[in-house]
């Protein structure tokens, strides 16, 4: 073979170039995020832990019908107010089996109230438990108080007044929310 071919086979310039790439990374900034001291903040539309507001909920069961895995369980009873003799539907049971939830958000889309009574945009992703079956079955009370769930710093549970329009759960401000699904361009 010719001399240049022989030299290029002998002196591995391609290998040195590869070494230069990895060697250069010794001096660059590293990408590691030291969890759990630092947590990355999810974006505003992040589909995280559920928030549920039983005050707003009108018990239409559209969320249960929309769920692809049928993990929302609703039960209600009719209560008669003794003074006014008016009948009222009261939700006795609103359970979500979170261990099978795939956080697809179809329940939030199906909810007709404004803002929705069930919402996922709560920036919280740390709900891990040691015991699966009891730990990940959220009834009405637990969906409200978020017992056992570690909220992202700054996010409040529905019991503390999380506003579904603001994923961080702050008090509603005068600015419009970015979670605009009406089809009007916001960017």
């Amino acid at each position: 073979m010719r001399l240049t071919d022989f030299l290029s086979r002998l002196i591995p310039v391609d290998l040195f170039k590869g070494l230069a790439v990895t060697g250069g990374y010794l001096l660059k900034r590293k990408e590691t995020v030291q969890y759990p001291e630092k947590r990355l903040e999810p974006t505003d539309r992040f589909r995280g832990m559920f928030g549920y507001d039983s005050e707003r909920c009108i018990d239409c069961a559209l969320c249960a019908k929309a769920c692809p895995i049928e993990i929302i369980y609703l039960a209600d009873k009719v209560e008669i107010n003794p003074e006014t003799k008016k009948k009222k539907k009261v939700i006795t049971r609103y359970d979500i089996d979170v261990k099978r939830c795939m956080f697809c958000g179809l329940c939030e889309e199906a909810c007709p109230t404004e803002p929705p009574s069930i919402w996922l945009t709560s920036k919280t992703y740390e709900g891990a438990v040691y015991e699966r079956n009891d730990g990940l079955y959220f009834d009405k009370q637990r969906l409200f108080t978020w017992q056992g769930v570690q909220p992202f710093p700054g996010v409040r549970s529905p019991a503390e007044g999380q506003d579904p329009k603001d994923p961080m759960g702050r008090r509603p401000t005068s600015e419009p929310a970015t979670n605009d699904a009406s089809g009007e361009p916001t960017s």
Binding site: D44, R45, M102, F103, T121, E184, P185, T186
Partner: peptide, 22 residues
């Protein structure tokens, strides 16, 4: 940022896409 999930996206609907771009 767009649809709320990173891996299992659920990011399109029959007829278009569910959300406007943020």
């Amino acid at each position: 940022e767009y649809c709320g999930a990173r891996l299992t996206l659920n990011t399109m609907k029959i007829g278009g896409v569910p959300f406007e771009l943020p």
